[in-house]
Each structure stands twice: as C-alpha cells, then as structure tokens.
Amino acid sequence: MIPEPVRALLFYLCAGLALAGGCWVAFARNIVHSAFALLATFAGVAGLYAFLSADFLAVVQLMIYVGGVLVLILFALMLTSRIEEARVSNPTIGLVPGAVVLIAVSALLVYACVKEFGGTTDLPPGEPTTAGIGDALLSRYVLPFEVISVLLLAVLLGAVTIAGGRLRKPAPGGKPGKERP
C-alpha cells in the first residue's frame, strides 16, 4: 500500500521516536518532563505495532498507555506535595553503575535478538486482527484473561479503600462532605 521508501522512513521515525523518548525519560532531570517524554515512547511503540500489522494493539497502546497510564502518572506527580522542587527532581545516582547496567542489558537484548530471530523476516500481511484477538481471549486464553481481570479488580478495590480512608476524614471546618448527586 504505502510505497517502500516512505515505509522505511516512517519505520525509522517511529523507532527513533520510541528510542529518543526513552532516552529523554531516562536522562531528563525534571521528573515531569520525564513523564511527558513517555508520550513520545508510547507513540513510537504504537507506530511500531502498526508496522507489525497489529492495528488493534497499536490503538490500544495509545488508548491505555497514553490515555490511561500516562495521565495517571502525571496525576500522581502533580498531586504530590513538594512538587515545587520538581525542576531538578530526578537526581542521577551515578554514571558508572548506570553505564554498567546499560551495557549489560543491551548485550543481553542484542544476544537474544540475534539468537532467536537471526536476520529478517517478511512482514505479516495487513489483516484485521481484532476478531482473532477477541476469539483467542475468550476461548484459549480465557483463564489468564479472567485472572488478570480479578487482579485488576482487586487493585481497584485496594485503591478505593486507601483513597477512601484518607478522604473520609472530616473537612477542616467540620462540615461533612455533601452527599448529593
């Protein structure tokens, strides 16, 4: 569909976006900037999914990670007290240990890639994947799917309990919160 050179260009754009975003997340000294840089990473990854013909996954990546996770991270950041000092809020622990970890992990990843895939493969054909995913989730993988649902539910309840305990404190003026829809 899309001509090959354009395709390549777009691929490198997406990959670069993901990579650059990742670097920014790691190296930004301002924690809010780091959080916003995640956006670039997520967008790049979504683009890569699209290249792999995983259209559903790409869109869900955007929806869940950008619309949900990222916003929650930002929320959490902005609601912390002492956020005034956020300008330099991401201190580096040390360059040497960081570099060691970086090299080790990179080596591992490269090794795994080469060992497992070794060379290139053709892209899968661009077919809709939604129906397949739905079928798989509700037949073959129904148990993991449900287990994850239960886990998420538990997390949700836990969050509500923690937040609720804090909120139910009477307001400073002794005026109870109004129970009105």
Binding site: A171, P172, G173, G174
Partner: peptide, 10 residues
Amino acid sequence: TIIEHLSPGL
C-alpha cells in the same frame, strides 16, 4: 464578614 466563617469545607 461571614464568608470567612462559612468557607471551611466549601
């Protein structure tokens, strides 16, 4: 004068 008195919790 009453606003300060009423405001807590609003």
